[in-house]
C-alpha cells in the first residue's frame, strides 16, 4: 500500500533519515518505536509529505507521491494524520472541525458531513460536545476528536504521531481504546509511540529506529521477547 524506497531526509547538514526502504501492506498495524531524535516522527511525516524527502521515492496506492507533479492534496485526503498536540482548530466548533475538510474537498455535502460527524462522535462517546469549542475539552477528548476528524475523510491509512505523548496519564487509556477499535475494524495504521503495551497488543509489526535507520523489525511477540540487536535490547531495557 505504501512503498518507501531509499528515503533520506536531512535538515541542513544533519541527516535524519538514512536511505530507508520499507513496505506497508493493507491492514497492517505498524508500530514505530525508538529513542527521541531517531527520525521516527520525520519518517511518518514524510509519508504524507509534511516533510519533503531529500531523496528517495514514496509510492502510495500506485501513485508516486514524491513526484513533483503528484496532486498532494488528493493523496492526503486518503491518509489521515493524528498529531501529538491534537491541532484541533480552536476557532471552530467540534462539528465544524470534523465537517470542514469533507465539505471543502467535495467529498460530502454539508448534510452528509453533519450526519457523518454525529455518527463518529457517538462512536467515541462525545456526541454532546458537537457544539463545544476545543478549548472546552480535556486532552483525551481533544485527541479522540482529532482521530474522528481524520476518519471523517474516510482515509485508507491512518498515521499517528505520538498520539498519547502530550496527554495526562489518566487520559492515555481512552485514546488507545479508540485506536484499538480502529485496528480491529481493519484500518491500516502506522503509529509512532512510546506505548509499548499498545505496540505489543495491537501492532502486527514493530519497527525499531535509531540514527535515521530501521535497525530491527519483527512481529511484536518475537520483537519484545527476543530482540536481536544490542541497541534494541538497551532501549527496551530502559523503557520496559
Amino acid at each position: 500500500m505504501i512503498d518507501v524506497k531509499a528515503l533520506s531526509k536531512s535538515f541542513g547538514d544533519h541527516l535524519v533519515l538514512d536511505s530507508i526502504d520499507q513496505h506497508i501492506y493493507p491492514g497492517e498495524k505498524v508500530v514505530i518505536i525508538g529513542p527521541s531524535g531517531s527520525g521516527k516522527s520525520t519518517f511518518l511525516r514524510c509519508l504524507n509529505l509534511l516533510e519533503e524527502p531529500s531523496a528517495g521515492t514514496i509510492t502510495f496506492d500506485g501513485q508516486v507521491i514524491t513526484d513533483p507533479k503528484a496532486d498532494i492534496d488528493k493523496i492526503r485526503q486518503q491518509m489521515g494524520m493524528v498529531f501529538q498536540h491534537f491541532n484541533l482548530f480552536p476557532n471552530m466548533t467540534i462539528r465544524r472541525n470534523i465537517t470542514l475538510a469533507p465539505v471543502r474537498t467535495k467529498l460530502m455535502s454539508q448534510a452528509e458531513a453533519d450526519d457523518t460527524a454525529t455518527a463518529l462522535l457517538k462512536r467515541v462517546g462525545l456526541e454532546e460536545k458537537a457544539d463545544a469549542y476545543p478549548a472546552q475539552l480535556s486532552g483525551g477528548q481533544k485527541q479522540r476528536i482529532a482521530i474522528v476528524r481524520a476518519l471523517a475523510m474516510k482515509p485508507k491509512v491512518m498515521l499517528f504521531d505520538e498520539p498519547t505523548s502530550a496527554l495526562d496519564p489518566e487520559m492515555v487509556g481512552e485514546v488507545l481504546e479508540v485506536m484499538k477499535e480502529l485496528a480491529q475494524e481493519g484500518m491500516t495504521m502506522v503509529v509512532v509511540t512510546h506505548e509499548m503495551g499498545f505496540a505489543r497488543e495491537v501492532g502486527t509489526r514493530v519497527l525499531f529506529m535509531d540514527g535515521g535507520k530501521i535497525l530491527e523489525e519483527n512481529e511484536p511477540h518475537a520483537f519484545f521477547s527476543d530482540p536481536k540487536e544490542q541497541r534494541t535490547r538497551d532501549f527496551l531495557s530502559k523503557v520496559l
Binding site: N48, L50, D73, K74, R76, Q77, Q78, M79, G80, M81, F83, H85, N87, L88, F89, L100, A101, R104, T105, A146, R149, A150, M153
Partner: peptide
Amino acid sequence: DVGQSEAGRSLGLN
C-alpha cells in the same frame, strides 16, 4: 501555530 496549517493540509485541504 504551524501545527494548524499542517493539520489542515493533512486533511487534504489546499
